[in-house]
Simulated assay, not measured.
Amino acid sequence: MAMSTSRLVSQIITATEIVFFNIFGVFGNVNFIVLTMKNKSLKSNSSYLQCALCFCHIICLLFELPNAGLSFSGVQWRRYECFSVISIYIFFICAQAVIIQMMTLDIFIIIYFPAFYRSIATWKYLTAMLVYPAIYSGIVVVWGFIAMDDELLMFCNPPLSLEPTVSRFWTLSNVIINTITLVMFLTLMVIFYYKGKQQKSNTKKVMQRLKVSILFFICTWYMGLLICDMSVAVGFTGETLILLLTHAVFFVLISYTQFFYVVIWRSPEYRNKFLEMWSFIPCCKRLRARFAETSKDFVTVFSQANSLTTKT
């Protein structure tokens, strides 16, 4: 009876989290794509790659909704039924983790191969950047189809829908991928610390926009994956293991949702365009006017200080 109550509470909490993050996550990711496509000043190879990430996150969030419905209904699926339905989700959940790594590589290319970055056609650049995510994701999904069985699942989500051996490979490989991404990103931070003044303004803007978002993603994605991986490694089994794997989705949902909100916080260009696009809403109109006034005051103060310095 106690376990039954625990399971019910777990289902309600998980479903509520999924619905909440879907509302804010889909809204944010769609807005990032629309802002990039509508504004020429925001278009670049980097921003298109970020749009690919947002698209993956939209798919991932939407595919979590059936799990929310199943949580409330109490319906349980067998692994072959669950995996067949969410295999597309698993493809995109794998792809988005590798795209984050490609976004870090993208900054390296901007810094060390600027002429190549400016000259290469966008479609060629994006194709090259997305081949690795597609191959890795395809391997996991194909292996998942080959290994699936008819075990009854408590929840229909990626860690449980994959056969345990495949699930273990998925979590461990993602930890490795994110560790490599973290090392790459920390290397970039060191480069910018020592050579920041020499970097071009466009490079600085990209780095400023992405550094918090990438670190935020790595932390939340790491946390979700480590909970899954360590739960198995420590030896948890049965209902305890299932509950731990299920609640790890909280950190995963944050990673799907945060990108747009970090961008509009860190990037004045995206923030201004967002407020302009939504200025028909009174609060956005007021915020747009406030930010414009703040920017004007800053420019005035900077000009006066610069003038005094010149006179001196």
Score class of each variant (00 low, 15 high):
residue 266 R to C: 13
residue 248 A to I: 05
residue 203 T to V: 15
residue 161 S to W: 04
residue 268 P to L: 03
residue 43 K to Q: 15
residue 159 P to E: 08
residue 27 F to T: 05
residue 94 C to G: 04
residue 124 K to S: 14
residue 53 L to G: 02
residue 243 L to A: 03
residue 166 V to K: 02
residue 297 D to Q: 10
residue 217 F to V: 02
residue 136 Y to N: 01
residue 61 L to Y: 06
residue 59 I to L: 12
residue 44 S to K: 08
residue 40 K to S: 15
residue 282 P to V: 06
residue 170 W to L: 01
residue 273 K to I: 06
residue 127 T to Y: 03
residue 221 W to D: 08
residue 201 S to L: 11
residue 209 R to K: 15
residue 195 K to R: 15
residue 198 Q to E: 14
residue 106 D to T: 10
residue 15 A to V: 12
residue 249 V to L: 10
residue 58 I to Y: 00
residue 143 W to N: 11
residue 84 S to F: 13
residue 248 A to K: 06
residue 271 R to D: 02
residue 132 Y to P: 09
residue 224 G to H: 04
residue 95 A to W: 02
residue 84 S to N: 13
residue 96 Q to G: 01
residue 27 F to E: 01
residue 233 A to D: 06
residue 176 I to N: 07
residue 202 N to V: 11
residue 34 V to R: 13
residue 115 A to E: 15
residue 265 W to P: 00
residue 306 N to M: 12
residue 202 N to T: 12
residue 13 I to A: 12
residue 80 Y to Q: 01
residue 260 F to Y: 14
residue 280 F to R: 10
residue 29 N to S: 09
residue 281 I to N: 03
residue 299 V to C: 01
residue 264 I to D: 06
residue 17 E to W: 15
residue 7 R to A: 09
residue 298 F to Y: 10
residue 189 M to D: 10
residue 162 L to R: 00
residue 214 I to W: 03
residue 213 S to T: 15
residue 138 G to N: 07
residue 284 C to T: 00
residue 175 V to K: 03
residue 16 T to Y: 07
residue 144 G to W: 06
residue 103 M to V: 07
residue 148 M to I: 07
residue 14 T to P: 00
residue 66 P to W: 07
residue 7 R to L: 15
residue 202 N to I: 08
residue 133 P to I: 03
residue 303 S to G: 02
residue 275 L to P: 04
residue 235 G to C: 09
residue 58 I to H: 02
residue 250 F to A: 12
residue 246 T to L: 05
residue 47 S to N: 15
residue 182 L to V: 11
residue 28 G to R: 01
residue 113 F to T: 09
residue 175 V to S: 08
residue 258 Q to N: 11
residue 158 P to N: 04
residue 135 I to Q: 01
residue 268 P to N: 02
residue 40 K to N: 13
residue 288 R to V: 04
residue 16 T to I: 11
residue 286 R to Y: 14
residue 186 L to I: 14
residue 60 C to E: 11
residue 277 M to K: 14
residue 232 V to H: 08
residue 276 E to Y: 10
residue 142 V to N: 00
residue 43 K to E: 12
residue 306 N to L: 04
residue 202 N to W: 09
residue 145 F to S: 06
residue 208 Q to V: 05
residue 18 I to W: 05
residue 205 K to A: 11
residue 83 F to V: 04
residue 285 K to V: 02
residue 32 F to V: 02
residue 70 L to Y: 13
residue 204 K to R: 12
residue 208 Q to K: 14
residue 208 Q to D: 13
residue 153 L to T: 07
residue 137 S to Y: 02
residue 16 T to R: 06
residue 14 T to F: 11
residue 66 P to N: 13
residue 97 A to I: 13
residue 246 T to G: 00
residue 149 D to V: 09
residue 152 L to M: 10
